[in-house]
Amino acid sequence: MEELIETATNMSIEWAPKLVAALVILFIGMWVAKKIRGGIRNVMGKKNVDPAVAGFVSSLCYYGIVAFVVIAALSKVGVAATSFVAILGAAGLAVGLALQGSLSNFASGVLILIFKPFRIGDFVELAGTSGSVKEITIFTTELATPDNKKVIVPNSAAMGGNIVNYSAHDTRRVDMVFGIGYGDDIDKARNIIKAILEADDRVLADPAPAVAVAELADSSVNFNVRPWVGTADYWGVYNDVHEQVKKRFDAEGISIPFPQQDVHMHTVAANGAD
C-alpha cells in the first residue's frame, strides 16, 4: 500500500503541472479564438462585407486557432503532435474527396459573395440560363426566368463559365435591323426611322442614335438602328420601335421585303418528229 501511495504521489507530482498547463493553454486559447472571431466579424461588418462571407472567414479562423490550441495542449501532456496532425490531415483529405463537388460550389459561392459579379435583382445569364437573381447562397444561386420559372444554378457552374450581367450599367444599346426594298428611297426610310427615335423620350440624345445602311442583302437594303436607352427601358423601346417602323413604313409606302420565291413557267412545244 505504501508503494502504491508513493507511486501515485510521484505520478501526481509529475503530471499535475502538465495537466494544469494544458488546461490553462486550452482555456486561454479558446478565449482568444472567440475574441478573434468576434473582432473579424466586427471589422468585416464595418467594411460592409456580406454577412455570409464574414461568418465564413471568422469561423474558419476560429476553428483554425482551436485546432492549434488543442494540439498545443495535447503536446503539453505528452501526446505526439505529429501523429495527431497526420490523423487530422488524412481525415481532411478523405472528407475533401468525398465532398469535392460541394466544396467546389462552396468556394465559388465565397468568390461570388466577395467579388460580387452580380447582385440580387440583377438580370443575368448564368450557365446558359437568363433570369433575375432572387437569392445568392453559399452553394447555389436562384434565378427567376422571364416566364417565372425558378432555376437553381450551382455556384461552380456560374463561376465556371461566362457571366453576362445585363443590369451592371445604367444604359444599354438597342440593336435592331430593318430592311427595305431595293426600289424604295433610302433617305426617306432613314429619316422616318430617325423621326421615330427622336419622338421617343426614352431614347437618349447622348450618345446619339445610329441609323446607317449596313448591308445590301439578297432581297433587301438593311439598316442598322442602334439607339441608347436606360437599362429598364430596353425591351419597351425595342418592341415599340419595331411597331412604329412597321406602321410608318406602311403609311409612307415603303416596302418591307419578306422571303418569297418566284416560279417561272416555260411552255415546251411538243416534238412529233421521230
Rank of each mutant, 00 (worst) to 15 (best):
V213G: 07
A251G: 02
R37V: 10
P51A: 03
S167V: 04
L126Q: 00
V213L: 14
F84D: 06
N239I: 14
S130M: 05
T171Y: 01
E6P: 02
K34N: 06
D175L: 14
G101W: 09
T129L: 08
I192T: 09
F106M: 13
E215W: 07
K134C: 12
T171L: 01
L23I: 14
Y62F: 11
T141M: 04
T171M: 01
S104F: 07
D250Q: 14
A217P: 02
V174Q: 01
G38H: 08
K194I: 14
P259M: 03
A205M: 12
D262M: 13
A67M: 09
N222F: 07
I112T: 01
V203G: 05
L197N: 00
A208M: 10
D201S: 15
V268I: 15
P207A: 07
A269L: 15
V151C: 05
F178Y: 09
R202V: 01
F56E: 02
V133E: 03
W228M: 14
A214G: 01
D175V: 15
S156E: 03
K188V: 09
G101C: 05
D233L: 03
A16L: 13
S12L: 15
K18S: 09
D185N: 14
D184T: 06
M159R: 02
S102N: 08
M11C: 09
N42D: 15
W31G: 13
L23K: 07
E3W: 06
D250F: 12
S59E: 05
I256Y: 06
D187Q: 12
S220F: 09
I5R: 14
R190Q: 11
D50F: 03
A210E: 14
V53S: 09
A80H: 10
T129I: 15
T171W: 01
F258M: 11
A94S: 07
A199S: 10
I87F: 07
G179H: 02
A232W: 08
N271E: 12
P17E: 06
D184Q: 03
I196L: 10
L216E: 09
G183M: 02
V177D: 13
F118D: 00
V53R: 04
G101D: 12
A91E: 04
S59R: 06
K18D: 05
L143W: 04
I25E: 07
T141Q: 02
T267W: 14
K188C: 04
I193L: 06
G128F: 01
H264E: 15
V241C: 02
R119N: 12
S104E: 11
V110E: 04
W235H: 09
P207E: 05
P154V: 04
N224C: 07
A232P: 02
K149P: 03
D201T: 12
S102C: 03
T171Q: 02
K35P: 01
I120T: 10
Y234Q: 07
W235I: 05
E6K: 14
T9P: 00
S12C: 12
D201L: 09
F27K: 11
I5C: 11
L143E: 04
A94F: 08
G272L: 13
M1C: 13
T9F: 09
E6I: 10
A251F: 04
M176D: 06
I256M: 14
N165T: 08
V20Q: 10
L19G: 08
A205Y: 10
S12W: 13
I25L: 13
